[in-house]
Design a binder for these strands. Structure first.
Lengths: 251, 251
DNA sequence: AAAATATGTTCCATGACACGGAACAGCACG
DNA sequence: CGTGCTGTTCCGTGTCATGGAACATATTTT
């Protein structure tokens, strides 16, 4: 009868249920949810039923998935929506120039959150997905953001152990520090197989003030990786978007 | 002390708060929220504080906006995400062929919900937005969906008064019925200034079985509206996507 | 076939906690 | 200075979310 002490109120519990689905979505059964959240079977059952009734979860034969209303609400989040809307034309330009996978990401804590990801028929296989999170240190977009987010953040990130997604991920703080310095002078971040095997990436920061508000990149299979051709396109798109953001703000 | 009887539990109240932001997002103050939801000031205050703590809402100087976690969760909704992922290459093709605003939408009840919307620098002004809802009867995508969602739904929609977004919106059930029949034989839905002034649109349904699972369209300013050029492109993209969905399912 | 294990589901008494009214605090007005 | 508007804190009350136990229904093991 004593309430579960770890989660405060009903809302915390509901949020815990939803958090089960981060960062990869999927479909879970009631038992999976009780295991992940620590909620009692009864509580999880009632909670899921409520969430289904509210459209935040959907049910299909003993499994629960995220519901359509979350999609609607997520699309309305102003910070994301506004950025995406101004960025999209530039991302399209970049895609049309390269026909490679194009990313737009923002920083959230020590992670990059992808706001947009467009690609054609031959998509590279990458851990990135819209709304997904990856460590700042393992991706082109992340490194571009990190290099222009202030020295405090850089030191914070370098202080803790660097995560590894592939054997090529940079885990030596000293190497990362020099990489960041190069990014700061060139305005371009390179990444080779550090997030996924056989995928390289060029990224460039987007500014709306002193620090980067976003970064965009193209990711290409290693066989087609030609920096001399890609770098100017990425840089152009990033500068164009920066200018659009500034002019939008002064209106 | 008597509890608000109209909303059952704490979760209902939280969902009511989030629903304030549909369908147009924005930023609301505490008073706005109490007015829209009917919650008491105290309850709304506590609830919003909880939602901010959970990342579902963000606060900025006495106003609340939808929070970043909703964006993350919304992007993971499987039904939407999977469709978007397979559709994107075809939408890109269509955009590259036309350089006009491209839509992808699905049906939800008597509305169309837009799953994707891509555009270049000269975007047409339209009420459509990703995650947004519009009446099936006022948009190209909507009419394409309606024409291939079974006669039961058609009759349901025709039975109730038809909504009007512009002076050109079709409100005569008889005219809409013949329009639907034309769509059914041609596989193409036309719409001229019925959703927004000065914008016309050609749409085509996407199939993964007997009924349409989605529809895609291009929307163009009236001055550039050349059906003979646009229709084949739209049709090609829709057929390509249909085929990709089918082959994806049989794997 | 029976037993065992795993699911999802319903029932219930209980007390933790969400509730709204009242009071307070800070601002902008005229 | 008062008056009207915000957001915020406090607190006693009783509602309703809670988890255990029991039930239902599959699937697997003996």
């Amino acid at each position: 009868m004593t309430r579960n002490s770890t989660l405060g109120n009903m809302l915390d519990k509901a949020a815990a249920v939803l958090d089960c689905y981060r960062p990869n979505g999927g479909a879970f059964r009631l038992t999976d949810i009780t295991a992940k959240t620590g909620l009692s079977k009864t509580t999880a059952f009632r909670l899921c039923a409520d969430l289904v009734r509210l459209g935040l979860l959907e049910r299909e034969a003993d499994t629960y998935r995220l519901g359509g209303k979350l999609f609607e609400l997520g699309s309305l989040v102003p910070r994301r929506h506004d950025l995406r809307e101004t960025a999209l034309p530039f991302l399209q330009d970049l895609f049309e120039a390269t026909h490679e996978t194009v990313h737009l990401g923002v920083r959230e804590g020590h992670d990059v959150v992808y706001v947009e990801r467009i690609h054609g028929h031959q998509a590279v296989t990458l851990p990135s997905r819209i709304g997904g999170r990856l460590p700042l240190t393992c991706t082109g977009v992340g490194k571009a953001l990190l290099a222009f987010s202030g020295t405090d953040l850089t030191e914070e990130v370098l202080a803790e152990p660097l995560r590894r997604l592939t054997p090529y991920s940079v885990t030596d703080p000293a190497r990362l520090r020099t990489a960041i310095e190069q990014i700061q002078v060139s305005g371009l971040a390179y990444e080779e197989q550090e997030a996924a095997l056989d995928v390289s990436c060029i990224a460039s920061p987007v500014f709306d003030g002193p620090t980067a508000v976003a970064a965009l990149s193209v990711a290409v299979p290693r066989a087609r990786f030609h920096p001399a051709r890609l770098a100017p396109a990425v840089r152009t798109a990033a500068l164009g978007l920066s200018r659009a953001l500034r002019s939008g703000r002064t209106v």
